[in-house]
Structure formats: C-alpha cells, structure tokens
C-alpha cells in the first residue's frame, strides 16, 4: 500500500460531506489533483465518508473518466473514428501495442507513455491520426510509429514538428 500521498482530502470531504451524490464529486476533485485516484486515498475516503471501499471502486470503474493508475508522461491517443479506422488506425494501434507492450488504458513501466483510444479528433482530413501529448500527427503509416515514439523517449520532449 502506498503511503507517500499526503493529500488534504479532509478539506475536500468537508466541502461535500452533507451533499447528496458527494462521492462522485469528491472523486472528481481527487482525480483533478492527482491525475488519477490513488488507492491510498480511496482507503482514506472510505473511512472519512463511511462508505465501503467496494462501493468506491464500483463508482471508479463504472466511469471511464476515472483512472486508477498514474497517467503516463505522454498520452498517446489513437483515433478510431470512422475515417481513421478506414485509413488504417487499427494497424497503428497494433504497432503501438507491439512497441509499447501495453494495451489501451495502460501505462508503460517507465511511466513515459499511456495508450488511449479516442473517437474523432476533428481532423479527419489527416486520417489516420495519432495524438501524442498535445501534438497531432496525421497521415501516418505503420512504419512511422517507431520513429515517432523514439523522438519522445530519447529527448523526453517532442522534436518533430506536427504535420
């Protein structure tokens, strides 16, 4: 169990304590603060709110919005919207699985990349599209993925210009 997290969740709980449906609102604030909901905090919430941990996890896992693991440094979002899908997004995704060794929703062991599937990113003209951090890369082929990722992992910051 992690004990390193020292939050002032008591304040958050205090703010919502007597309001209906407070659990979701509290979890939202926690996620905004940490980027995910650490288990240690769920334990503390369980005590403070007198809500079983199982109920907290029912809520956390019901909504895709909530994350249980720390996010990676870069979020790699593969667009699987119709245009990207038809232009070969599944192949790009497969290559990302292969290179990063993770599935969607997971983060690489070194904490660098987190893989997500998104629907439309609003630039279907560039299909197939992958977003890394805040940069969008379009017109990608399977063979582009290795180089693209290596730019991030080597330098720790993007060097290539977005298309």
């Amino acid at each position: 169990m992690e004990t390193s997290v020292v939050p002032d969740i008591a304040n958050v709980v205090e703010k919502w304590k007597d309001k209906k449906g407070n659990l979701i609102m509290i979890l939202h604030e926690i996620q905004n603060q940490y980027g995910y909901v650490p288990r240690e905090i769920s334990f503390q919430l369980s005590k403070l709110l007198d809500v079983p941990l199982a109920r907290i996890y029912e809520v956390l896992t019901f909504y895709n919005y909530f994350k249980l693991k720390p996010p990676g440094k870069y979020t790699v979002s593969v667009c699987m919207g119709t245009a990207c899908y038809l232009k070969g997004a599944p192949e790009l995704l497969e290559e990302l699985h292969h290179i990063l060794g993770i599935k969607e929703g997971e983060t690489t062991k070194d904490g660098m990349f987190q893989l997500e599937i998104v629907r439309c990113l609003g630039c279907c003209g560039l299909a197939p599209v992958v977003k890394i951090g805040n940069k969008i890369y379009g017109g990608l082929k399977r063979s582009d993925i290795v180089n693209l990722l290596s730019q991030y992992s080597k330098e720790g910051a993007p060097v290539a210009q977005p298309v």
């Binding site: 941990l53 199982a54 996890y57």
Partner: peptide, 25 residues
C-alpha cells in the same frame, strides 16, 4: 456479500459487457 452479510468483499466492477465480480481493485 454487501447486504445480507455486510462484508463488502464482492462488488461489480466496470460496466456493460465488461462488468465483472471482484473485490475492490
């Protein structure tokens, strides 16, 4: 587990077709 026995070991995690019985986490 939750109501008759008040133990709360088992819960439904995730949703839809991915729903599964599991302890928390």
């Amino acid at each position: 587990c939750q109501n008759m026995q008040d133990v709360w070991a088992l819960s439904f995690l995730e949703r839809g077709i991915h729903t599964r019985i599991s302890p928390a986490g």
